[in-house]
Nucleic acid binder design. Sequence first.
DNA 1: AACAAATTTGTAATGATTACAATTAATTTA
DNA 2: TAAATTAATTGTAATCATTACAAATTTGTT
Lengths: 140, 140
Amino acid sequence: MDMKEIAMLLKDHGIKPSHHRMKIYEYLVTHRNHPNVDMVYQELIQEIPTLSKTTLYNTLNLFLNKGLVQLITIAENEMHYDADVSMHGHFMCKECKKIYDIWFEDNDIVLPDLKDFAVDESHIYFRGTCLACLNKQLQD
Amino acid sequence: MDMKEIAMLLKDHGIKPSHHRMKIYEYLVTHRNHPNVDMVYQELIQEIPTLSKTTLYNTLNLFLNKGLVQLITIAENEMHYDADVSMHGHFMCKECKKIYDIWFEDNDIVLPDLKDFAVDESHIYFRGTCLACLNKQLQD
DNA sequence: AACAAATTTGTAATGATTACAATTAATTTA
DNA sequence: TAAATTAATTGTAATCATTACAAATTTGTT
Ligand SMILES: [Mn+2]
Ligand SMILES: [Mn+2]
Ligand SMILES: [Zn+2]
Ligand SMILES: [Zn+2]
């Protein structure tokens, strides 16, 4: 996804595509690693040495409000962000803290439609241990 | 659920049933309101004026480790606790911040079993607006 | 009672996020 | 194009949930 496309996408969501905003979105869409704020910051600060963390927080909240990214609250003390807003689940490994995508077959999961609630977001989270960390544990 | 039963339940989970611990669990099991730490504290401090917030945090973490309660990470800046550890979903209203239980019919939801992951917990979260808040909004 | 172990407390530290005012950049108007 | 206005970005301080840690208290055991 090149800068032209990113600019278009931001505009389509009512976001003026400043340089900072485009770089922040580019990070999310190319890495697809469900980063927390600091992971984005440590990477972008090398390209944009003046980048402020406040700008990062402001921009991510702007993206959230415009529906461009989704918020992942699977971790206990920090937020994670996902540029993929399609319906899929997430697994967080308690050992390595990595967050994996969980994709469902179309009929695998049918969420009930809730009367008495106007639902904006649906999230499916799992926690446990990933295969890499399970194997590491076997070596003890 | 009386104190005798609570003491038994804690013992069954390998937790020595001190007075504080029993009162904390009693709060959770009688209110069933998915409280954050401060909600528990503000209620119990009236009965136990010496109660320390550290004790509360320690006790809740002990309950979590022993599988007596479950952690709900649906909110963005604080944790919520649930004495009901059976499989059910949660809905948080963005307006009033209340957390509702969402119960599924047996076959309503079938979570796929993930190979490559040892799953300890599964959570289903919804966010949106509850009926009470929707009605309030209509009055404008 | 004397000792040891477990529990509870109070205070300070940590760390993610937000508040806010100042600065800089971009856009509009004259 | 220069001045004026608006928007974006920055830096610092504040907020607040949670944890760290050592002291004090309670409980259980010899
Ligand atoms: Mn994802
Ligand atoms: Mn519940
Ligand atoms: Zn892992
Ligand atoms: Zn509500």
